[in-house]
Simulated scan of single mutants.
Amino acid sequence: MGFCVDDYARAAAPVRWDDIDLTVFRDRPLSPGTLRVLRYMCDVESHTVCYLRDLLVTPSHADPEVTTFLTMWNYEEYWHGEVLADVLSAHGVPTGSAHVREVRLRQGWRDKLAPIKQSVIANLVGDDFVATHMSWGAVNEWLTHAGYTRLMRIENHPTLTELLSRIAAQETRHIAFYATQARERLGRSSRAQRLTRFALARAWQPVGANVMPRAEVRHLVGHLMSGTDGDKAADRVDSKIDTLPGLSGLHLVRRRTESLLRA
């Protein structure tokens, strides 16, 4: 069976963490490297509404299934940011509206031009842009899920593992939508395949790379995707990208992460 957007919309909900005692981090705090990664992840999850703003000026806004999903996706991603913010707060790391505002204002003129640039390019491309959007989303969600999984294994902290497992379970539903849409749309348009392959090969970067400082992007990649286990995680995501029509052989994640690690 395909992905049922109506079922997803009815089931979408904030990830639950009110039953988890975050004071355990006082006696067993997370490592500084992991906290830095969580800061990155929290900032990116909290930035989702800005990505949504840019997408709503593209042909994606005309598809009711896509907009229903995006509404609930944005809602769930908001709460992912809140969970991570509470973990950071438990370690004395500043969070809240003032920090989120700072991250958004830091984007400067790029933030002001982003929806204009996105609108012009996407509407010139037309409906095939939606295939690119769905494929891009699938790649990002696959990588996000891989990142949470890697962080659980690296830190091996029971409380963090429980929290990230709950977030990852919701990300799995997000993956299902994006990947299903991408396969269907790429499968019926060779032009969409060419456009998507070109866009990913030329412009895709790890999630949040266009928002976070370069040093933080390199730290994230180094913490999660370096070494033998990191290489294997990157290859697993690349193997999933290979299953999308017209996108095999890109080696996208491995190439981008290796490039960042060399920088």
Rank of each mutant, 00 (worst) to 15 (best):
T159V: 15
L160F: 05
L160H: 07
T161K: 01
E162Q: 14
L163V: 09
L164P: 00
L164M: 07
L164D: 08
S165A: 15
S165E: 13
S165M: 13
I167W: 03
I167N: 01
A168R: 01
A168K: 04
A169D: 13
Q170L: 04
Q170H: 12
E171V: 00
T172N: 09
T172S: 13
R173S: 07
R173Y: 05
H174R: 07
H174Q: 10
I175D: 03
A176P: 05
F177H: 04
F177M: 02
F177I: 04
A179G: 08
T180I: 07
T180V: 02
Q181A: 12
A182Q: 03
A182R: 03
R183N: 09
R183S: 12
R185E: 06
R185S: 03
L186F: 05
R188M: 09
S189L: 05
S189H: 09
S189T: 11
S189Y: 09
S190K: 12
R191N: 10
R191M: 05
A192P: 03
Q193G: 03
R194Q: 15
T196E: 01
T196H: 07
R197S: 14
R197G: 06
F198C: 07
F198Y: 09
F198E: 13
A199C: 08
A199W: 09
L200M: 11
L200F: 06
A201D: 15
A201F: 08
A201Q: 14
A201T: 15
R202L: 13
A203S: 15
W204F: 10
W204Y: 14
W204H: 10
Q205H: 13
Q205F: 08
P206I: 06
P206F: 04
P206A: 08
P206Q: 00
G208V: 12
G208H: 05
A209V: 12
N210Q: 13
V211G: 00
M212K: 07
M212A: 14
A215F: 09
R218K: 15
L220K: 12
L220M: 11
L220H: 11
V221E: 00
V221L: 03
V221P: 00
G222P: 01
